[in-house]
Amino acid sequence: MAYDRTAMLKLLRPAMTRILTPLGRALVGRGIGPNAVTAIGTLGTVISALLLFPLGHLAWGALLITVFVLFDLLDGVVARLGGKGGTTWGAFLDSTLDRVADAAIFAGLILYFVARGDTLMAGVTLACLVAGSLVSYAKARAEGLGLTADVGLAERPERLVVALVATFFSGVGVPYVLPLGMWLLAAASTITVVQRVVHVYRQTREA
């Protein structure tokens, strides 16, 4: 089953680009490049997740991380306004730091559950972290072999939306929403891994 992993971002990107353009222009004017923006966004995400989530500040953590996640769009704006466009190094750095940010978000939630003695949900959240990493790895490995793996139920944007929305509403007192979100993500990410493995297998059989 083919799946457009950027469908959601395609709807949001034009509006967000217009909003972020003045900030991007200001950063370019101060000599700040897209790679620095990427690094700042990742650092902010890591600090917010590992500091606020374990302490139980779920709503504030989710809001701050959402702001830093927007740096994924801002670095592209800065690259365009700086006249250099994207580079191979920038693309590699962005993808690598995305994995760091994702790991920090789920690690922070694991620590949150551990601190409250909820070992079951800590395990489910760990499954989200592992399966999410496998989703990304499967695609990268397939592309390294000259194949494709752009299929699946839960790509990174969807996983982030579910995780952050569930975390925020849990932080403002909505019951059961965070456990439900983690169970949903664990299942969806696992299904996505299977979908990608099957997709790559079929390509190798056709070769």
Rank of each mutant, 00 (worst) to 15 (best):
I47F: 12
T87Q: 04
R13D: 10
R5W: 12
Y137L: 10
E206P: 06
D102V: 07
T204E: 13
L9A: 10
G29Y: 01
L180G: 14
R196V: 12
I47C: 08
F71L: 07
Q195V: 06
L64M: 14
I110S: 04
R156K: 14
G144E: 00
T6M: 11
R25H: 06
M182I: 05
M16D: 07
L55E: 14
A154P: 00
G41H: 05
L50T: 02
P175F: 03
L11D: 02
A2I: 13
L64F: 14
R18N: 10
V100G: 03
A2F: 13
V114N: 04
P14D: 05
R99F: 13
D72I: 09
T88P: 06
L153Q: 03
L81Q: 15
T125M: 04
T38S: 10
L145Q: 15
G146P: 13
P179M: 07
L43A: 15
A131H: 04
V162R: 01
V197E: 05
V200Y: 01
P22R: 11
L11E: 09
I110H: 09
A91G: 08
L27I: 01
G171I: 02
Y176I: 08
G108T: 04
W183G: 07
R141P: 04
M1I: 06
A142Y: 02
T38H: 01
H199F: 15
F169P: 02
I32V: 15
L178W: 06
A104Q: 08
G24N: 06
L120M: 14
G29T: 00
H199W: 14
V67D: 08
T38Q: 01
T148L: 11
F68N: 04
D98W: 07
L74M: 07
D150V: 00
D118T: 06
L93Q: 05
A49I: 08
A49W: 05
Q195K: 11
A207F: 06
M8S: 07
L178G: 01
R5N: 09
V162E: 02
L109W: 02
L109I: 07
T66N: 10
S136Y: 14
A107P: 08
A138H: 12
D4M: 00
T204F: 05
G29H: 01
V124W: 03
L160P: 11
G181V: 12
G181A: 10
L120S: 04
G173I: 12
A7C: 01
C128Q: 06
P14E: 03
G181C: 12
P175L: 11
L97W: 09
A122M: 13
W60M: 13
L23G: 10
A166C: 14
V194T: 11
L111F: 14
A138Q: 14
G173Y: 14
A2W: 11
